[in-house]
Amino acid sequence: MPIFEHAYHPYDGPLTAPRRLPLAIARRGLAEAFASRLVVLLLGAAAIATLVFAILIYLHYNLPALRILRLAVTKLVPIDAQFFTVFLVIAAVLAFFLALWLGPPAIARDQANNALPLYLSRPITRPQYLWGKMLPLLLLLSVVTWLPGLFLFVLQASLAGGQWFAANLHIAAGIFLGSLVWIVLLSLLANALSAALKRRWPATAALVGLFFIPGIVGGILDNFLTTPWGRLLSPLALMRIIWQGLFRLNVPAYGFVPGPDGHRVWGVLPPVPAWSAWLVVALLAAGCLALLARSLRPYPPIR
């Protein structure tokens, strides 16, 4: 149909399957993300971090290289659960900045420009719209967290042999599950705040606040009430508890604890069970979904 006709023509050709419609939103989101220099920079930083960790692994099994660098194997960082946890923490920080940059504007821009009626008058549902908006973020966060994490694990396993692989399979599960919890939580929080606050910068500020202010409040509660449960208010502490459980690590948390003479002293806080952290994360995710269900409407509800 040539454009010079300037006439209306119906369409009766093939249609895309409804389940694939959100991919159109996701494609647009990805294109917009890669147009941002900051995103490219953060992805580059993630690639460099992965490369450094891969070199560290490789050096363990390459004596000529160690000789050139005049290093002893004993001086290298051991490749164990702690090694992968450190990588995951670095990846999580990069993921946080990616989510902070890409998450808040995703839905807020549509809300600000009244675009939701345009989306939702088409054959897509609200969950599909949300899926389309979350998918680019989930993909990019995967690229900086569990994908390189599993690559490092496979590299180590290929160099160390089947015995190491069998003995440390829980690390692979930890990398995947630990990353998944983090990126899903980040994506949900970023999109829920974006949808609820309808403006990019307030949503960004709220996301930063949500990750740090409850942690401070939790620390104060822990210290004043000498309870370990205040930590559960902090998303960062929640992740630490969950990751420690997944990687089978036992790194103590420090704070003020009751001393023998009744005064509070700096010491090891009693541990918080991992299930409680999982429960709080599940509640947070449910809260985000409830907020999204309330906010993702073509027109604001009449009260």
Partner: peptide, 23 residues
């Protein structure tokens, strides 16, 4: 007024078409 930010006219309409099921 309703549109999608940071798009040209043709990008906007292409997205709307795709969301309606057009290849």
């Amino acid at each position: 007024d309703a549109f999608i930010a940071r798009m040209t006219g043709v990008q906007f309409l292409r997205l709307m078409g795709e969301l309606s099921g057009l290849p």
